[in-house]
Design a binder for these strands. Structure first.
Lengths: 252, 252
DNA sequence: CAGTGGTCTAGACCACAGA
DNA sequence: CTGTGGTCTAGACCACTGA
């Protein structure tokens, strides 16, 4: 039985109509907070769109946009003729389009990086195809060891197109790859990933402080910037006792 | 340099305004086809929204909705002041909210299932919490072996709340769990998954025809129906040489 | 500057669920 | 039947891009 639930009054504070933050985003943020701190508990039923729009002084499309964003995040569920409800079950953070480095910092850990290798090489046919560059054109090949609180966590193998041959390797010790790219005006917009598992090779085992043949979690990724161009191809392997991937799927 | 690209004329065939398929979905489907068969090649630039809307006899919001759907799928990229372009790189299918069984059938494989165990038990605290049922309430515990073309692929461990105690076990041999649930009017809307890896136990190794200690890919999932209620908790392990997860992430 | 996508409005009609 | 979300329209103004 869906709980009728009165919305927390914080939701109806004045919105900032002059600032740069879209109104639908302000509404979505407030709703998300209310869900995360359980002032809107799992199962709670929201007011209908029209009523919300009136009470907030917004148009219906704006309210709909806010609600839809939370549906896409897996926090709300809507049914025609019924209403909108908070999904049961704990709220989890989703995999986002960030680097492992940012993932870890956000969790309050202290990641660092050892650059194992960095060399210019020529694109093989596989790399040329995934990055969309000419066969044999120069690319930057990076190999790094990512640690968290001093414990080895993952081996990161990355290939970048020629524009990035002059990347500052010193900076890579202190920042994630994506942070460096963003500082150069490159923003990641789309990533295609494949997650699997296999046995650790001898060298991987040594670097990750485990035994050869023990399982590692693997992820290969191609990332594209806002112009749709491939800017990174990565082959990573993780210690499975220290890392896993969290994903929320929503039926559209 | 962004390619100016003339849109394929099939796009502008008459739309079905009376049928049940939304106009934005008809447009999105046609665009997606054009991208997948490369009549719109990677890097191609679309006409602007206003022009498209006029040529299709639609309003701008409807066109925007169609385009946004493809952006969310990772097929298109948009930049204010610039335009909309097709993402470079091969088009891949995304992980969807389906069962492994449907995944396999769609790839033209012939999945089958062996029900290893099926018993009613009482919810432990973990299960009660994830499914949102009372501690100790009856639940259905399923254990299945999924094979593809006769080769063991995965061990599927599922727990369902009391409503499903009467599931037809015979049907489980021939259909996926999600198919059975849908036939009962239960539609999955949200799933929260965690993907990892570990060493196979002795029993797992035997069932999957591998050696103990070899790596398996693991996935745990809680799935919610359209009312936001948890209807399934699954703990699965896969042979990593035969299965992996494909994911597309989009920055919003 | 002109052109693009991003946001927002104020309506309308429809499809579906439940009493 | 009423109430809900789903779709669609025809505008408006703004913010950003590149020439």
């Amino acid at each position: 039985m869906p709980q009728e639930q009165s919305l927390p009054p914080e939701l109806f504070l004045d919105l900032d109509r002059s600032g740069p933050v879209p109104l639908y985003h302000q509404v979505a943020s407030r709703l998300e907070s209310a869900i995360r701190d359980e002032s809107l508990p799992p199962g709670a039923k929201l007011e209908n769109e029209i009523a919300l729009a009136q009470r907030l002084g917004l148009s219906r499309p704006t309210i709909r946009r806010a609600i839809q964003d939370l549906v896409d995040k897996g926090l709300l569920v809507r049914r025609r003729g019924i209403g909108t409800q908070v999904v049961q079950g704990k709220v989890t953070r989703n995999v986002e389009l960030t680097s492992l480095y940012e993932d870890l910092s956000r969790q309050g850990q202290e990641p660092d990086t050892i650059v194992l290798d960095s060399e210019e090489s020529n694109a093989t046919s596989t790399i040329a195809e995934t990055l969309g560059v000419e066969l044999g054109s120069p690319v930057l090949h990076l190999k790094r060891l990512r640690r968290s609180n001093g414990i080895p966590l993952a081996i990161l193998d990355n290939v970048l197109p020629a524009d990035f041959l002059d990347l500052d390797l010193d900076e890579l010790t202190r920042h994630g790859l994506y942070q460096l790219l963003r500082a150069r005006g490159v923003t990641m917009r789309v990533a295609k990933q494949r997650i699997g598992a296999r046995a650790a090779s001898g060298m991987e085992a040594e670097l990750l402080d485990m035994d050869q043949g023990e399982p590692v979690l693997t992820m290969t990724r191609t990332a594209f910037d806002s112009s749709g161009r491939a800017v990174e191809y990565g082959t990573h392997c993780y210690r499975p006792d220290l890392y896993s991937f969290e994903i929320t799927l929503v039926e559209r």
